[in-house]
Write a protein that binds this DNA or RNA. Sequence first.
DNA 1: CAGTGGTCTAGACCACGTG
DNA 2: ACGTGGTCTAGACCACTGA
Lengths: 260, 260
Amino acid sequence: MSSHVRVGAVEHRPLYLGLAAELRAAIVDGGHPPGSLLPSEAELAAAHGVSRGTVRHALSLLAAEGAVASRQGARSVVLARPRTQSFGELLSFSAWARSLGEEPRGRMVELRRRRATDAEADRLAIRAGDAVFGLVRVRLLGAVPVMIERTTFVESVGELLGELRLEVDSIYERLAERGVVFAHARHVIEALPADARDAALLDIPEGTPLLRQQRRTTSPDGTPLELSDDRYLGTAVSFVISNSVVQTSLERVRGAGEEG
Amino acid sequence: MSSHVRVGAVEHRPLYLGLAAELRAAIVDGGHPPGSLLPSEAELAAAHGVSRGTVRHALSLLAAEGAVASRQGARSVVLARPRTQSFGELLSFSAWARSLGEEPRGRMVELRRRRATDAEADRLAIRAGDAVFGLVRVRLLGAVPVMIERTTFVESVGELLGELRLEVDSIYERLAERGVVFAHARHVIEALPADARDAALLDIPEGTPLLRQQRRTTSPDGTPLELSDDRYLGTAVSFVISNSVVQTSLERVRGAGEEG
DNA sequence: CAGTGGTCTAGACCACGTG
DNA sequence: ACGTGGTCTAGACCACTGA
């Protein structure tokens, strides 16, 4: 049944991704509404001309998204309409804004080449005093400022920033085109009051609750690429996380700032 | 594998879980420090007498925890020491507190059988006006109040609460003993200012930033069991998320050609 | 180039759930 | 009792990494 229409550059997409996309679309379109049961794995395998292992791989993706749940002995159930994929959206304000139907905008506050502090050097796996690039932007949804983004890039990545139009570009999308791949991220989320600078940049009273997302992102081989401290207006943004007994992506740790 | 003797009512744990636990322990103990490369999948398979598929299953768990990363063509690398995390710790303040070496404590504020609001009924998949149990507790670490827990249980679960000593017991652990299984959860996390009641319960000034975690938990088959609104002192607690690029996140359907 | 992980298949047995 | 998902094996080919 496979339609091998090959367009442009895109070549081999793994079968399980195509199957997952198809099932995801069927759930979103209402073909498999929440609460309904999916066809059995054997049926899906036969219908798509793939092995059961491939079907299970596809279903495991949907399970990780919180879209379906499976139990031994019973058919998988649809839990909810899946949200758009998380990784890119957790990283990229632009991608996230567009998924909301908003036009992502930004205001550049500062881009500066400087020396890494000891804490930064440690977390970026470089030497203290090595050069890094610090970037500060205020991001808007519509006309409203909703977050402050303070990012520290390692030198090799930061050097590429000069070519970008930082007022509008999505850094992550542009860097991806240049071969800089962000593959893993660790986020620490907490609440804190806006300090004087936060308040000025977001045009809010000092002390307003902000949601802080600290992030450390690495390349596929684990090399640190950036640190980020993003502060969202608590009323404008929230994070959604789904987890299951087997799949846990969320962890609660004792606070006190600094992620070590 | 070779002759394995069944001893009585041996509980048999899947091989991939045992292998994952072993690798996790080796990483924590320093046998595989962050930055180091793991043995190849073939070597791990041979060393443990299992197939490569089982090894991959185990590694996928560690990858989901953010402990290891793998790329095609290269050996998997250790990213970080995994923090212990179980689904239970996410739900259960008690389990989490104990993992910190603290004695979990709580102060019961209210337990009441009442009628579900429309919004609650909708999210719990029951009829508006059906009976639910509302529970409010203040949880302490040491002597310090760090969170307010407001939970709404469906009737069948709430009925079991009467038997518990809510000042000390972990609800989730006790309910698990009674066969109530919490399997999936969806969390919404945001920042908000403490209102007058929050402030009184936590003994803090009104307006103090709190981290709110709203949660909806379901049984393995997707039946909603509880809603919860937990508010943490922003300075006492933070959440950590690890994620990786799953190929699904690269999936982007665009009509026209790929333009830079 | 050899080694490695990524994908996929085919088949097997088991534990569980539902009628 | 039967169908279902959960686990596991063995083997195959490919795409990629790294010396």
